[in-house]
Design a protein around this nucleic acid. Structure first.
Lengths: 174, 174
DNA sequence: TATTGTTATACTCTATAACTATA
DNA sequence: TATAGTTATAGAGTATAACAATA
């Protein structure tokens, strides 16, 4: 497929050129903080900044620890909830995990293609699918939970046992 | 642009059909947990699950609170760090915030187009750009910080003052 | 050779809208 | 008419690779 029309920042960097022109009339700045001296400013007082950094760190460790079975955090959450609630519908699953219904469709396509989940017809409502794990899905879930538990164990020493418990408790407010 | 070739799940849902066939040989499940009764299973013991939910909640509130000036969390962090470290380079900024260098280029294009930031030539290294806020950028940053502070204030009662402090402290471990 | 800023590309995720089949 | 599952599409964000200019 030819790149027809670039979606993001289509043109040749006019803004960059403009900055250069503008800069020509000013004295170039000389100070550039050394890498270690960069100031986070007011970000230091924002929960969201640290929440994002922490979440990324945790997910990256999770992905690494489960790379041998190729299960992402989102896939893990889907397998766990199906495993604990056999027969639930896609809408219920999506609502529980905060995943878009449309997104879940494609995740389930993939998990089904890998032989881990099934969509069975619901007995009492022709619109719904009753979700369940296959035998292979149950096995994969058990392995995933073991690896995820190892991942979780790396977080405790990183935080200290007490702060770990405090965090787990405090974050339930959301 | 014609949809040439679908990237995700190209074919007509074969997996779905397959599931239907498979299901035909089995008794349909009857139990579907009521929405309130859905069990999170082992997710209840995973920091990452709650970290992600919290981060999404916080960002959504942040976006809402700053919607009047149309500044995203990522844009806010960029403005704050440039404001606190005038003259720093794009690589330093990207490294500090954990943003890809390539991604930052497009963010700065946009911020520059909005007249909030500038890229000046660095005096001692021809490869680098020295980043700074324009006057308008400084004004926008001040407004953004005021609105972000309001956002932050909604988090404290939600958590309680003590747990808020504990969280902010504990998450610095990452 | 290595680094800075940049372009290009692909993939993931989010967000909607619209369609179908059922209710 | 409303809901469940689905398709399609656009937009962010992430991840890489490659390139030109500069060191």
């Amino acid at each position: 497929m030819p790149p027809a029309k670039r979606i993001l920042q289509p043109g040749p960097d006019q803004s960059r050129r403009k900055a250069g022109v503008r800069a020509a009339g000013k004295a170039p700045l000389k100070v550039a903080p050394s890498p270690s001296a960069i100031d986070l400013g007011v970000l230091n007082q924002h929960l969201g900044y640290f929440a994002r950094r922490m979440q990324i760190w945790i997910f990256q460790d999770f992905i690494k620890k489960l790379s041998s079975i190729d299960i992402s955090p989102a896939q893990f959450s889907v397998l766990v909830v199906i495993g604990a609630n056999e027969g639930l519908s896609q809408a219920e699953l999506a609502g529980t995990l905060g995943i878009e219904r449309a997104r879940l469709v494609r995740m389930l396509h993939l998990l089904e293609k890998r032989g881990l989940t099934q969509r069975l017809p619901s007995s009492d409502d022709g619109r719904r699918h009753a979700l369940r794990l296959t035998r292979a899905g149950q096995t994969t879930l058990r392995r995933a939970q073991a690896l995820a538990a190892q991942h979780e164990e790396t977080l405790k020493p990183k935080l200290g046992a007490e702060r770990y418990r405090l965090l787990l408790d405090a974050m339930r407010a959301f």
